[in-house]
Design a protein around this nucleic acid. Sequence first.
DNA 1: TACCATTTGTACGTATGTATC
DNA 2: CGATACATACGTACAAATGGT
Lengths: 261, 261
Amino acid sequence: MYIKDESMNPRPTNSVGLTGLTQLTKPATAHTNTPKRAESVMDAIKALILEQGLRPGDSLPTEATLCEQLGVSRSSVREAIRKLEALNIVSVEHGRGSFVGSLSLDPLVQSLAFRSTLLSNEGFEGLRDVVEVRRYLDLGCSEQVVKTLKGTKQPELRRLVGEMQVLASEGKTFEQQDIAYHLGLLAQLPNTVIKQLAHSLWLVHMAVTPQLGLEITHHLRQTADAHELMLNAAIAGDLEAYRDAVTEHYRPLEEILSARI
Amino acid sequence: MYIKDESMNPRPTNSVGLTGLTQLTKPATAHTNTPKRAESVMDAIKALILEQGLRPGDSLPTEATLCEQLGVSRSSVREAIRKLEALNIVSVEHGRGSFVGSLSLDPLVQSLAFRSTLLSNEGFEGLRDVVEVRRYLDLGCSEQVVKTLKGTKQPELRRLVGEMQVLASEGKTFEQQDIAYHLGLLAQLPNTVIKQLAHSLWLVHMAVTPQLGLEITHHLRQTADAHELMLNAAIAGDLEAYRDAVTEHYRPLEEILSARI
DNA sequence: TACCATTTGTACGTATGTATC
DNA sequence: CGATACATACGTACAAATGGT
């Protein structure tokens, strides 16, 4: 009854191939035994976007047009659009129409945040895993970060570090500065996926931490100072010190989480 | 035509405990609120799962039940369920019912694969970014991997490496062995998020590479051998060598991708 | 086999809120 | 302001899949 394990095996409907046209081959006559109309409509819309080379923000055909061109009812089109909307592939605005979505990683946030929350009933494994991946990502791109920051000034990051330290000494949290700092570190990298991924994981992190209670506030100062160490090491071009600082930065939280599991 | 209701039980039934299904504030007049019905229904279903402590595979109330308990129409419930289905938070089986989903990272695959395909018209930035993140993840968790593999035998990984080398020498690809190998490296780690993330990124990788053409087949041998180097280094406990091998493993592909952008 | 109950899937009609002109 | 176009929501009916009798 439990595990259905379709987890590691995506449906065969995963065609990303851009073979062809928007037409669903079965307009006139009734039911051509399609196990899932909405699925094929989804694929048709994706294909439509690819074929026409639409970009995020470009407008899509109206629901009525899609119904007509695909030969399906509004319900099917709407459900397909809903799924694409959940995946951020299309975005819908009320009285205006549907548009190509931002293709951001928001779905990942939704999914991971819910997953972490669900698992948090039995401990904080979900959050611990997320934080660990954040650390892996930061460590993984440490070489690039140090290379791009070496010998620079980074006054903006300096300012953020200062603000965090002030807030920490006052016992206040500094989420805004924290996320701005981490994004700033990665800003130089051309890789948009890692930036979005880091941002998403941070959002998941934030969404779940409230369930930890106030315990984290004991380590505010420690975390703020770790940010300074990271910045110093990167600017000095000291890769090893940077990596140590990253590890140190995550340690307080990870210790708390390990203790809670 | 829409008299119904308001004669049924208007019982608040807002019991605190686990049985509760947070009733959506049902206005007496059928049409007052319009911001986003499906959104609130989505939240209600997520709350339901959390409140009742349901696990992946557990069954959810039927659509009719949800309509009744939430006081919304079936269309709204269905659209909410579609969105949750896209996020893998619920899974639906025709004729059987709805269930708590596997909470896997499939949505990420969908989203990233589509994104990469869309961007591939102008180059291979999307795939390059994905591969780079894969490398970051592998490098990031290198310490853990080396620690857990040091001094062990790993006959299964040895076998996979051998198969890959044989296939490479025959000019054949070895996707199955490749993914099994990489998952095997991470298998010892308790972090499920990174395992799913690595797997998802690999799927994205595979979904997009066909658009590269056959150029990659020139580096099969090189890649297969890199897998052996990684394994040797990990078993020897040589962190630095392992990290170098990881970098070497991704280099051929990354060079191709950089050249194409 | 046949039948039936349950549940999801699809279609269609209708009414209403909302944005744009 | 009205007119139009569009998305949103509700309701109903039927089709299709599943599981059991």
